[in-house]
Design a protein around this nucleic acid. Structure first.
Lengths: 158, 158
DNA sequence: CTAAGTTAGACAATGTGGTTGTCCATATAG
DNA sequence: CTATATGGACAACCACATTGTCTAACTTAG
């Protein structure tokens, strides 16, 4: 085995997940402090998938890798807590465009700043070169398009 | 901002998650090929939490950060598909010891080998030093005890 | 222009996995 | 012996995903 003396293979995925979790937990603790206590971890990904121009529920489902029904329900719940709104598409009466509200956009701005701050923390702890190397290496082993996450219901049954 | 010119802060968590996901997807594709098509991503963590000596459902729930009832249901479903078994504890009539069956232990052995192989792939692609540095850096920013994952229901509502 | 096919969205039924609350049997401390 | 704590089972409930079906509206062929 070429891994003799190295960390066991299972440590890598575990540390990757824990590192992800640490960042997301910190993000949401901060967001809660800054007036967004109701946001859940996956909401940030949903907001990113909605994008600045808005989308439809079907397209959102496609981007996130879930059924259109699941996407529709998610939009509904985000609409209830005031983060997105649905408006009619003037050019297609079937479609309803999902857009971020001002509050939704605010949470996205704050998230970006918090993520940058967390990265700065890592730079302080590990060094700028290490963090850049980390990002570089992870880019090598992950798909190019970051937004195809597919993760809702990811731990469920097939 | 000290992040000027660097990757945006949100890339780091995303890449961490994607890297985790890539590994776990590969693991389960391999496991399915090797006769374990019914295993889900979280089962591996459950097996690790059960450990070689077995545990009780309550202790399992504590380790995984879920209620004892949730742990009990998970054990029940794993028992149905033949990966764990429950036996009485001779020294305490209340307790039932949950143990891996031979099939469960087999899946754990295979997982360990597959994880090592995936790590070897990363070594080939990134270099041994980079992978070791990656593991080292991730250890710096994650909790010491790897097994406190707390992740079931992690994306749900509070 | 119409007929056929496709697409967006809503609604219903279902399954899984989590939660809390309750209850009983068994251990353990005083 | 009694009081308390613990392990496990059972029930009700909730969140979130799934598939299937239905309608309305757009698109394309003829």
């Amino acid at each position: 085995m070429s891994s003799d003396g190295d960390a066991p293979g299972f440590e890598l995925p575990l540390r990757l997940f824990l590192a992800f979790r640490v960042i997301i937990d910190e993000l949401h603790a901060e967001l809660a402090d800054q007036g967004h206590p109701d946001l859940r971890p996956m909401h940030g990904f949903v907001f990113q998938a909605i994008g600045p121009d808005g989308t439809t529920a079907v397209e959102l489902g496609r981007r996130l890798g879930v059924s259109k029904q699941a996407a529709g329900k998610m939009v509904e719940s985000l609409e209830r807590i005031g983060y997105v709104e649905r408006t009619a598409d003037p050019s297609d009466a079937r479609r309803k465009i999902v857009r971020l509200t001002a509050r939704g956009a605010d949470s996205l701005d704050r998230s970006a700043r918090i993520f940058d701050r967390i990265r700065d923390d890592w730079v302080r702890r590990l060094g700028a070169g290490r963090v850049r190397a980390l990002e570089h290496d992870l880019r090598q082993v992950t798909p190019a398009d970051m937004w195809r996450l597919d993760f809702p219901g990811w731990f469920g049954t097939p």
